[in-house]
């Protein structure tokens, strides 16, 4: 059980180093997903299975996909088919695949030995029930503040991401061809 912690920690550090040394953003995001998955395995060995699931869903799922969408929106004109073909070479995806295979082996190992109640490597095992009871008991004010924060995030993202339509009066718009015509005359 403790060996899985050390392997997952090594995978997390290695993948993070690969993230910050890549030049291509998509390659960096591949390693970023592996880093988040490794941290999720660390959460599992720490006795926090609900947080491991949330890490996979929110970080490795939602946030990384959001960043990928924005990258695709920004660099749509520069990348062509040749670039796309060059990205699919095996040497680009074999690194993240190898690291995530290590994590898969750890997950299978943890599932196999988990016939007894899970024995976390450190301290105690805190399940989702205790987290939920505490979250909606003493921490309910924090939940409401999180709701306000998310509302502000939605409004802010909509306001900032909206493309402002440039309004030009029609006389000003036709100024250019009129000037050419007067120059011709």
């Amino acid at each position: 059980m403790e060996l899985t912690f050390y392997i997952a920690a090594a995978v997390a550090v290695l993948a993070t180093i690969m993230v910050i040394t890549r030049y291509n953003m998509i390659h960096a995001l591949l390693y970023l997903v592996v880093s988040f998955l490794a941290v999720a395995v660390v959460f599992l060995t720490m006795g926090a299975p609900f947080m491991a699931a949330l890490e996979v869903i929110v970080y490795a799922g939602a946030i990384v996909v959001l960043i990928i969408f924005v990258i695709m929106m920004l660099s749509l004109t520069r990348e062509d088919v040749e670039q796309e073909k060059a990205w699919l070479q095996p040497k680009l995806w074999v690194g993240p695949a190898l690291l995530s295979f290590v994590l898969l082996a750890e997950l299978v190992y943890l599932l196999v030995i988990a016939e007894m109640p899970a024995t976390p490597a450190t301290g105690g095992y805190v399940d989702a029930r205790a987290v939920g009871l505490a979250l909606y008991g003493p921490y309910v004010l924090g939940v409401q503040l999180s709701g306000i924060l998310l509302m502000a995030g939605i409004v802010g993202a909509y306001h900032l991401g909206r493309q402002k339509k440039k309004v030009i009066h029609r006389f000003l718009q036709e100024k250019e061809p009129q000037k050419e015509r007067s120059a011709v005359l």
Partner: peptide, 27 residues
């Protein structure tokens, strides 16, 4: 996990919420 209390995981949920809002506004 060291003290076997749920408070640490609740703080992680709040950090997760903040990170989601931050990445949307940042993008």
């Amino acid at each position: 996990s060291h003290w076997a209390q749920p408070d640490g995981q609740i703080m992680f949920i709040f950090i997760l919420t903040m990170a989601a809002a931050e990445v949307s506004v940042g993008l």
